[in-house]
Design a protein around this nucleic acid. Structure first.
Lengths: 191, 191, 191, 191
DNA sequence: AATGAATGAGAATTCATTCAT
DNA sequence: AATGAATGAATTCTCATTCAT
């Protein structure tokens, strides 16, 4: 019998290598040769486990969004008050793992790519709406419906904007600074 | 007899076609065939006037950033008080032309691409810093240096984040809503 | 304890699956994955029992030609007169098993392939000549040598041509019609 | 201005090279590298003029069937009596150009391939039916409807069978012999 | 005896660039 | 000034074969 149970291992390996390649070369210059080279496997494996490059890229995006969602929701669960819940959402978005350049680079590449690839757009929309509706839910506990809508849209945009600009910081993403800005915004929203 | 003075015409034609192609197909699926087809000229023209596809793409990004810069600075010039100046920067960023999906799509594609293409990164950094330093300059008239830094970074991120999320709105970019959110943030920053 | 005596079983299984795959997908789209899938075994088995795909394909062709040869010779043995012998050859070629589309499809694929694969060409030539020499042998009992040659070549070509065209009939190979045509030809050859 | 009017030249060149490649290597081993190599052009040309390999192969088959059809119909036009018409159909099918091994090899490859490729099957059916209906038409002038049907089906099968077996003759297709056999059959059909 | 994970050579296709006209 | 035919390197995908278990 051949080695069994390799599937989850290989899939994780290849998704990691895809992130690494997007980080190093950009999505446009990410080829299955580079991915399989980084993963230390042959190119054929990609078709074998994912069907093709597109599916691997999609799986990578899904992984990133799921990780991000989990980082947020695990923190939100532990929070008590509505204010702490929003705080937790911000914290989750700027937790260490999420702000590694490796992560942010892929996130940005996907955001751009999603505009023209339906399967990615679907994932992107789910994620975008999740952040927005989470925020609205807790802001409503503290503000009028109209104010909550504006506050949530503003905070969601600020979080994504901090990521976006953070991706270009020479000295790497400064998550402390990002959090400080977001918390400052939050304090001002809640008077 | 050959037509003379075609250069500026052809360059503008090709840059417009490049924006159109990025909007329609995405940067990844933008080929010189599509660009020259949209422009109604032959493929050879691109090499002739720009040297190659990369240079055309770079020229297109430069054009977009210059347009954006001019939309902002023309408004800033007319503003009087520091608060109006900041208001003008926001207005400029969400003026009609800037928020057309055509524009936002290219802007986002370039932001992603710039992470791995030095010539684009340079343009991107100039633009990114210009927005930040413009904001800091006027916030300093109204806030302490520390507060001004945070306010400027926050506003810059919010503006970019609103673009980013606006690019995905089903019903198109709602620049009124974006401005409302940014002005609300501004009001809270300046108490 | 390992099963013993599996070899003939596995070989027959794989040859059947190869016929089935050629029938369903065509020789060009017959892969060892499809063959082993149809046979319900793993791909490795093919190398194990046949050495490789080519050898399996060759074995399949050999099987088809042997089956065909046996269908003919068993009938010929029972025939008495030269005319009945020729009749038996025709009958054998259009007996039920031989005219199933499954069979004809593989036969045609091999005929085409044999033109460029020496090992298949050899099998093909043996078979082609066997039909011709069988026919000549019995026609000589009834006709002059020159007439017998033409009669045999004609009948051999007619039989193969009926297969060829029969393979494309929408409603399947009509062996009754094929036999009627061949017998009519035979009657005219023998006045 | 670049060279114009190259399209028909290149298309003919590539179709010829495809025939040559099928003759030399077989359809299964015909690659766009081999085709473009034989044609003395680059591989990109194939996509440029045909869209892809499949379309080139289809165009090649169409060319072969059209040539065959024309060889037949030009002869039929000149024939006077029904018997001469049938004679002309046979002549056309075994005229020099049609019986070159180059031609026959491709013809056989396509026949096999057509069983699983709808676009080729369509071409094949048109051609197969044309031969049959042409023959029926003229046999009806000389025989009863039932006899005409059998005679036509028999002659069509004989013609194809002679091609099929002729493709394998060591010393090349002997069109004189093929014609002699077919004419002999014709004489016997018409008593 | 049998598996199926892994390989990597080979295939078709795409596309920026070149260049004769 | 402008064309677009032609190139060929680069990319993705397929698939027969190998081999550790």
């Amino acid at each position: 019998m051949p080695k069994v149970g390799m599937e989850p291992v290989r899939r994780a390996q290849l998704i990691d290598a895809t992130c690494e390649s997007i980080f190093r070369f950009g999505l446009a210059d990410t080829t299955i040769n580079k991915i399989s080279g980084l993963a230390g496997v042959s190119t054929g494996i990609i078709s074998h486990y994912f069907g093709g490059k597109n599916e691997l890229v999609e799986a990578t995006m899904r992984k990133i969004l799921i990780d991000l969602g989990e980082a947020v929701s695990s923190r939100v669960r532990q929070a008590k008050t509505p204010r702490q819940k929003i705080w937790a959402i911000i914290e989750g978005n700027f937790s260490h793992h999420q702000t590694s350049l490796r992560f942010v680079t892929s996130w940005l590449a996907f955001w751009s790519q999603a505009m023209h690839v339906p399967s990615l757009a679907k994932l992107q929309n789910v994620n975008r709406r999740r952040l927005q509706s989470n925020l609205v839910f807790w802001y409503r506990r503290l503000l009028s419906p109209e104010e909550a809508k504006i506050a949530a849209d503003g905070m969601a945009a600020l979080i994504d904007g901090l990521w976006l600009r953070g991706a270009f910081e020479q000295q790497g993403f400064d998550s402390q600074k990002a959090k400080a800005i977001a918390f400052d915004y939050l304090n001002r929203q809640l008077v």
